[in-house]
Design a protein around this nucleic acid. Structure first.
Lengths: 188, 188
DNA sequence: TGGTACATGTAACATGTTACATGATTAG
DNA sequence: CTAATCATGTAACATGTTACATGTACCA
């Protein structure tokens, strides 16, 4: 078997390997797991998962198992995969990338019709309020879980980031001048 | 002249048009302007700027002027460009995208050597502290500028986002358990 | 005269997105 | 039996990144 030894992983591939540390998963499961566990600060699409899985299988980092019911095909991490994952964790993570289109619209607000701007702002404020609520529910669930059954300290730390981020975003919305937010009540 | 009428703009192209509302700029100037004005929540590379400029020129949204000293080539927004920009502002901005590799490393912390993790965390905390300081300086500068000379309300609003974001990130770092942050003092 | 900052651009590649095609299994 | 959900995958395209090639102007 010919295996390309150490093509550096990208963060998306690495996170799939991270999930596979806890046992074999199918592409479908990985999509769902990634959405749930890291969706707040890392987006992954189905296409990417299958592509990365195929590439990693070719590189010997994962192994496809027998197809089961509904064609489910579980992937298992290999020793080479663990090694690649460890090598990835040793590298300094890149700076975060934020792409927030609403901020562009706000930043160019001088050239945007005020009702439009206020409408966009109200829409996004509502979405963020929902996300904050969902994170608070997750946090409450984690705190009431019996010790050893809830998510571990590391997962809690990333959840805490989401919580603080959403709170900061909401505070920003609420501090916006009325010229941008529009008449009070539009987003309450 | 054949002009493709309304190929929808992407946010990067739209932001270039946004800057061109204030007068002609060269590709080089646009890179610098974007970095300064929207770099905190929207990254743009040189390659992209020249590519988008060429595409927009082909679509009649901008017009290349005469080459000046050092081959500087100023681009001017056309009426079609203003129209395309306005159409872009009318669309509901997409949700923000955050990709924060450090959070992946933290989230998978159970599989990462503790000194490594603490090292990465300390590095990023320091970078964020620097960014917060730079935003605070910008804010102070804006506040002390004579009325009408500092950045407008819209730019202040986006600066305010950066400020709140960085404060939230630092607070998150400082709330991290010692098992993740490492021995106290490492990042002070 | 030599280094740095300015300035434009291309090429190759990596990554991300959207849409589609196909079929299995389960619940009602 | 039929609609919804599960599940895998491909294709086409858009966007983003990195590296390079080329040359100009300024300043020490």
């Amino acid at each position: 078997v010919i295996v390309v030894p150490d093509r550096a992983l990208n963060a998306t591939a690495a996170s799939l390997l991270g999930f596979l540390h806890d046992g074999p998963l199918t592409g479908w499961d990985l999509v769902a797991t990634a959405q749930r566990r890291i969706g707040a600060f890392w987006s992954i699409t189905q296409s990417q998962v299958y592509r990365e899985l195929a590439a990693m299988a070719a590189d010997g980092l994962v192994e496809a198992g027998e197809r089961g019911a509904r064609d489910r095909r579980p992937y298992t991490i290999t020793p080479a995969g663990r090694e690649a994952f460890t090598a990835w964790t040793a590298e300094l993570p890149a700076a975060e990338l934020i792409r927030f289109p609403l901020l562009l619209t706000v930043g160019f607000g001088a050239h945007v019709a005020p009702e439009r701007l206020a409408g966009h702002v109200a829409h996004h404020r509502a979405r963020h309020a929902e996300r904050l609520a969902s994170y608070e529910a997750l946090k409450a669930a984690a705190e009431s879980a019996p010790a050893g059954y809830g998510p571990d300290m590391y997962r809690l730390a990333s959840l805490d980031f989401g919580l603080r981020y959403e709170r900061a975003v909401l505070a920003w919305f609420d501090a916006l001048p009325e010229e941008i937010r529009g008449p009070a009540g539009g987003s309450k």
